[in-house]
Design a protein around this nucleic acid. Structure first.
Lengths: 221, 221
DNA sequence: CTGTAGAACAGGAATTATTCCCATATATTT
DNA sequence: AAATATATGGGAATAATTCCTGTTCTACAG
């Protein structure tokens, strides 16, 4: 008989873990299920039992999902991590994959997808939420294989970005930079396009995430 | 024998519902459990079966949580709603209570608290997550450093605020809330005026500071 | 019971902002 | 010298925002 898949479930919400568990145990391919409610214990349990697949929620307090993932990957580059996130934004998915995740699904996914993804990853494959994969494909098709990073901004665009993200109006930014309103308005547009953002609110949040502006509540990663 | 408590579970994530269900069925006081994955069907099921308690996830305001609650309360002022949220910020709790919820617990709560709260509410009582209750007491003592300005927003304005601050465009927000574009555009203006903000970037930063939206770098309180 | 007030919702018209497509200048690379 | 990237802004079409208006509802005071 084939070995069953062992899984380490990491999520800080007990109820949510119960939910995952319910679905995972429905599959006869899946055996032991370990549980952890935070990154620290997840790392420890991982070292101890070496589960085949880690199902990880990345929106956790404490060390956070990303950091836990990095540590596990660091310890064992072959480790198979499936990220199960509430975020359906591409940024999170690409970040997770870059950090070493083998799969990324979201909580809105059909529950069956969970076991499907776990099995795929256990076999050495990968699994990306179809909707996100498509979204990525589209965004690539539309604006090419472009670095959606702040580094893709020209110096001047970056100046404008900082001011707009901080909450200045287009007019205020143009006065501060001694530029024509039109110039700033045009940068405004090119910045959003380069960074694939739709609104200045997204600019603000990105800047906050990147530590460019302070909200007063940042945590050190 | 005493009648068992019937519960309507509202959460858009199937896995999460499975989790609630696991814990709720552990108690012999709880009987039938109905499920809904969105506000619309929740309202419909509520009218149809009149469950004793509604366990409602308001994960992100606007997407149906708050609005569904208001509708149910509208239809039956005696209806007993327990909000089960991921947000441990006071704003959400006070808003939920104002909108008619009988209880508010968070997903970080010990799972046993769920059934405890459901039972308390079924009996006509109320239940507030102890940590939040304490937090509120403290903040009242300090004379609400909390969100004094956010309080000036009407419930609907608050819904719109959350979405715009998160980076949705006016059109996207109107679609999510099923409102006319014009209505959202008008709220957009009134929100900025009430909060003395000039741009949506400022809205985003304020929301981030208040912990209403996550940038992924927040400090845990 | 009636009136007032607040809130939710949305249309119309005037005003602004944004987009897209230019054009020019300058500096750097190749 | 030619190509490329950047900085700067104009013009015109389009879209978003503001400000004002109105209709419903509900809540609540007198």
């Amino acid at each position: 008989m084939i070995e069953k898949i062992s899984v380490l479930l990491v999520d800080d919400h007990a109820v949510v873990r119960a939910g995952y568990k319910t679905y995972l145990t429905l599959s006869e391919k899946i055996g032991t299920i370990y549980e952890a409610d935070r990154g620290e214990s997840a790392c420890q349990l991982y070292s101890e039992y070496r589960p085949d697949v880690v199902v990880l929620d990345i929106s956790m307090p404490g060390m956070g999902g990303f950091e836990a993932m990095r540590r596990m990957v660091n310890r064992d580059t072959q480790c198979k991590i499936l990220v199960f996130s509430i975020h359906d934004e591409l940024v999170f998915m690409t970040r997770a994959i870059k950090a070493g995740a083998k799969g990324y699904i979201i909580k809105n996914s059909e529950p069956e997808i969970l076991t499907e993804a776990v099995c795929a990853i256990a076999k050495g494959g990968s699994y990306i939420e179809p909707k996100l994969a498509q979204k990525l494909a589209l965004s690539v098709a539309i604006d090419g294989i472009e670095e959606r990073s702040l580094k893709s901004l020209t110096p001047r665009e970056f100046d404008v970005f900082c001011l707009l993200a901080k909450g200045l109006t287009t007019r205020e930014a143009s006065e501060k930079l001694r530029l024509s309103y039109k110039t700033v308005a045009n940068y405004h547009t090119s910045i959003k396009e380069k960074l694939a953002l739709k609104t200045v609110a997204e600019m603000a949040l990105l800047a906050s995430r990147e530590g460019i502006i302070k909200t007063g509540h940042e945590k050190i990663l």
